[in-house]
Design a protein around this nucleic acid. Structure first.
Lengths: 283, 283
DNA sequence: CTCCAATGGACGCCGAACCTACCATTGAAT
DNA sequence: ATTCAATGGTAGGTTCGGCGTCCATTGGAG
């Protein structure tokens, strides 16, 4: 009913011609016509099913230190509303995380879902490293986002509350033991991202950080690195508070370079897995 | 079966206590305990159903100039595989965009889906402005991403091919008429983003640009702005090609400031709608 | 002329997820 | 002691979307 005979005949030549000179080509060799950024634009639409994504988001809130151990999460109905998923899905996710030891649910009024007082340790993936992440891509995004974030934060005029919060987060992570370091570290970086004042930016930083943490969880947390990070955190926060944009950027760059060196050193010359595996069959 | 009696009794005090001092509070007033970045982390998991997202992604490839008019898209099976959705969904989306005049499909071998030679003009949303976007957030993300992008691009050592492509994109947009300006402009910016070498960054810039374009489509495209943009594009590309990081950043900031001024000027002191409207009912 | 491979087109089955409504539990307010 | 409101817990029906399979069309290869 659409694209009748006239259209077909009219377009016929144009199409074949275009397909020849610049159209889609399967072999990977791209004719110069246009289409070379297709790999990024043809990325998967869904990263997982609703259940998995909901679990991921709850874990995000837990691991990035948004809620403290023992603290209460919003009620299921509220979570479902905010996440835009059904309550069933939220419940499934909460039940899973409950079985994993992250959450505890209590019924009745003033009940709810609570973070466990002691969070389970991230299991060391001994044999199979499931996530299959593009490490270079992750670290590039991280560098780009965090540097840009600190740059904007440093040139903003912060409120007294923001300054207080920032400083509190800094002292929290300075005083953290190994057990809680990763979480409080993430919370500090998230707080800096929030200073930009854009929910989307906060979300992007949070997403990236979760993925980077998945990599960091595979390698040991050295005392020496913590001392280093603490100094760098201090420099970063100070630069933000004094509005020294250049210094803030430089401090953050040094901070990130440390992590990059750690990761590359630990992974050796591992060829940084790419290309997230597409199904190979043809239906 | 999980969280038996012992757990409940053990955690009982902790939970109520935590809920009182720092837990989730519905009224918007956040106790200082932690949780204030929740708004970003509690964002919707799904932006729309699979069909809508697929349409959006195809429109992205069309409007951002990834494919030229008359050019061929990948076959349905390939699109389905890359997008991670079923072929049915891709077909629905293609059919929709075909009815809207964007795409034309031809059957048989060497057939496929092709962009229309002349793309339909974006309809002016006269009465209802559907998207309901957070303009401040969009522009903040744009500023952050594009400046960071150009910063990284300028300090990279570009290959000859990259330089050629960049220059071609620049001359293309310089020579564009009003009809094609927005598309070629987007393609130039996307090309710059690609220089970072991270698919995720390209995707983020593409997503942001699509949203910003939705706003820009609501206001007239002035000849004066085009001339201005052309000069700024020239400065940006030149700075990238000469590896002048500082100048590239500055040029991009000026470029973006122009758009911000245009938007704010056109929208007047419109209070930049926020808070994407959540359903209000309680089940 | 015949064949064939690549593409779009169509159908049925099934699980995932959503929606609605209702039930169960609990502790504070009265 | 009773009530009640807020919360988690459960169940049935419905829609959406994915999967597998097959059909239809077409232009080039042999």
């Amino acid at each position: 009913m659409v694209a009748g005979g006239e259209w077909a005949s009219i377009l016929h030549f144009a199409t074949v011609g275009a397909a020849t000179i610049g159209g889609y080509s399967e072999g990977g060799g791209m004719s110069e016509g246009s289409a070379e950024s297709t790999s990024a634009l043809l990325r998967p639409i869904r990263m997982g099913n609703s259940f998995e994504e909901t679990v991921e988001r709850l874990l995000q809130m837990i691991h990035l230190g948004v809620y403290a151990p023992g603290e209460s999460l919003p009620p299921e109905r509220e979570l479902a509303r905010r996440f835009g998923v059904s309550r069933d899905t939220v419940r499934d996710a909460i039940r899973s995380l409950g079985e994993a030891g992250y959450l505890v649910t209590l019924r009745g009024r003033y009940g709810g879902t609570f973070l466990a007082k002691t969070l389970p340790k991230a299991p060391q993936p001994e044999g199979g490293q499931l996530p299959d992440l593009d490490i270079d891509d992750l670290l590039t995004v991280r560098e780009l986002l965090e540097v840009a974030t600190v740059r904007v934060a440093a040139r903003r005029a912060l409120t007294a509350t923001e300054r207080d919060t920032l400083w509190t987060r800094l002292t929290d992570v300075q005083a953290a033991d190994c057990e809680n370091y990763r979480r409080l570290d993430s919370r500090l970086h998230l707080t800096i991202a929030e200073l930009v004042g854009s929910p989307s930016v906060t979300a992007m930083v949070a997403d990236n950080r979760m993925l980077v943490n998945q990599i960091l969880d595979r390698m040991p947390l050295l005392e020496r690195n913590i001392v280093n990070s603490n100094e760098q955190h201090h420099a970063i926060v100070l630069a933000i508070l004094t509005g020294d944009k250049e210094r803030a950027v430089q401090a953050m760059e040094e901070h990130l370079a440390g992590t990059v060196a750690l990761i590359h050193g630990f992974l050796g010359a591992s060829p940084s897995r790419r290309a997230p595996l597409l199904p190979d069959d043809d239906l």
